Amino acid sequence: MLKSFVNRGLYAAPALALLLSGCGFGGGHYTDRNFEYYHADMTAPLELPATRDNTQYQDMMPVPNAAQAFVAPKGKFQVPRPDTPGGEQPAAGGAVRDQEANGQRWLIVPGTPSQVWPRLVDFAQDSSDVKALTPAQGQIETNDFTIAVRQGQRPGTTEVYCLTKNTTNQQCVTDLQSTLSSSSDQ
């Protein structure tokens, strides 16, 4: 009986090894989706509701248009470095833009955080009692709201948030946009 069990095991072992050889445990197997991407259908661009001002919105990560068709030269080819997002630097006197996503609203302000910071401090001091200024963390705390600042996604821009208890303070964002827009016009 033991001999019969061992003989069956000898036949089963190679079959089991062959079966398990196709199973990858965490490495080596990737699904090639190039065919799917190549044959994917284009979809219509996202359309905003009629209540939105389309001039206030643009692509967050635009893909630049190609100047000409690409043909790889024979022999060695080096991939060129991509342009910076958006192509060129924004003008210093550009418009303050309002952004909204996932129930949160913030401003995109032209200039680096260090250039925008003094204007935000002035706004906070004019609007409320300032409790704490922490430029290293990019925060201004007042009795009514907290202004948070961070580097924008595009070069030469700053993202400015106005929060009350970690939610957007709509009135503060609106007042801040008005103040920053008028100060950038001067």
Rank of each mutant, 00 (worst) to 15 (best):
G27A: 12
A66C: 05
E36V: 10
N34H: 11
D83N: 13
S182Q: 15
A17V: 14
G156V: 01
V79M: 01
A124R: 03
E88G: 07
R52I: 09
M61K: 10
A12L: 06
N169W: 06
D83T: 13
D83M: 12
L2V: 10
R150D: 11
S21C: 07
Y38Q: 10
N166C: 00
D32P: 01
T174P: 08
Y30A: 14
R119D: 06
A15G: 07
V160D: 15
G86I: 08
T157C: 01
T51K: 07
L2W: 09
F77P: 00
L2D: 14
A69H: 04
S21K: 06
Q171D: 01
G27M: 09
G87D: 02
W117H: 04
V109N: 05
S21N: 02
E88L: 10
T84F: 05
G26C: 03
E159Q: 14
H39D: 00
T174M: 14
Y38E: 11
T164E: 14
S181P: 13
E36R: 08
G93D: 15
Y30P: 06
G93I: 03
G22Y: 08
A72I: 12
V160W: 08
N54P: 15
G138Q: 03
A67W: 02
R33L: 12
E141I: 04
L180V: 12
T157R: 13
V160N: 06
I108W: 02
A91T: 04
V6E: 02
S181H: 11
R8P: 00
E88Y: 07
S4D: 06
T84P: 05
S21A: 01
T43M: 05
S127K: 13
Q177M: 15
M61P: 01
Y37H: 08
V121I: 12
T51S: 15
G22Q: 05
